[in-house]
């Protein structure tokens, strides 16, 4: 029996965030919210582990009330229960404050149900920080195993886990004692289609909501108060000077290609002389 928690985040589908070319502002309306893709792989990993070893899975998220949708998505994967940490006290959290609140949620789950394994996505696609997973591991004092591409095996008797990690120059295999925290990359697994019973269950499911008052945590370490970093300024990215259009691409591709090569060689020669 493996008691698992998957930490997930609802994110805007950042590939669809656009700038209005006329007003130069962000178009936020109509941008769909999705379950962070890496977290989907972490959820699937938990479900596969449950199928193999037996166990219980809780999906845990922090966010506004509408983040319940991401948790319902987890239910379609086959997660047993879902908890949403939602409170104004959490608003404006940076990664340090986020890991504080999520850790408090994990401690509560651990007290009530026990905890062997925490699974996270390697990072969220909106912030790309990859900092919350290690932050949680550090606070809980769990070994952290980041960039996992596969869970080799879990020895329930010895209470160990063996994981393959994707590093820049190869694949590393590590063994750590349970409880542990694993962050997953997309190579971890292929997502499956949700089963009909799980979809029906998800449609009706209402995640439990915990506020700051439900957690054993110092409010000073949450939200804006608990965030050492502040956003001082926001500005448009600097633009590169537009360059030269080489004509003829449509009716004389060979000519255009030749002209491009001439210019490139000239440009490179000038650069080398600097």
């Amino acid at each position: 029996m493996l008691r698992m928690v998957v930490c997930v985040k609802q994110v805007p589908d950042t590939t669809e965030v656009r700038i209005d070319p006329e007003t130069n502002t962000l178009i936020r309306e109509g941008v769909p919210s999705i379950l962070n893709p890496f977290d989907a792989h972490a959820t699937e990993a938990a479900v596969q582990l449950k199928e193999k070893y037996g166990g219980h899975i809780t999906a845990l998220s922090m966010g506004p009330p509408q983040a319940a949708e991401a948790l319902k998505k987890c239910i379609t994967f086959g997660v047993d229960q879902a908890v949403l940490l939602s409170d104004r006290a959490f608003a404006g959290s940076d990664t340090l404050a986020t890991s504080c609140a999520v850790t408090a949620g994990l401690r509560k789950i651990a007290q009530e149900d026990g905890l062997d394994l925490v699974l996270c996505g390697k990072q969220a696609i909106d912030g790309d920080t990859a900092q919350v997973g290690p932050g949680i591991a550090s606070r809980l004092g769990f070994p952290q195993i980041t960039y996992a591409i596969g869970i080799d095996k879990i020895e329930l008797d010895q209470r160990t886990i063996k994981v393959h990690r994707r590093l820049e120059r190869g694949i590393e295999t590590v063994q750590a004692p349970l409880p542990a925290l694993v962050t997953c990359v997309e190579e971890m697994n292929e997502l499956r289609y949700a089963s009909l019973p799980n979809m029906i269950r998800a449609a009706r499911y209402k995640p439990e909501v915990w506020t700051a008052a439900d957690l054993d945590v110092d409010e000073e370490s949450l939200g804006l108060h608990g965030s050492p970093t502040v956003v001082a300024r926001i500005f448009a990215p600097p633009e590169r000077e537009p360059g030269e259009m080489i004509p003829g691409g449509a009716d004389d591709p060979a000519g255009a290609a030749a002209s491009l090569l001439d210019k490139l060689l000239e440009h490179l020669a000038a650069g080398a002389g600097e």
Binding site: V17, L26, I234
Partner: peptide
């Protein structure tokens, strides 16, 4: 930030 649509300057005060 926001997929590169804007730049943000962050301080640890």
């Amino acid at each position: 930030a926001f997929g590169g649509n804007i730049m943000a300057t962050i301080l640890t005060r």
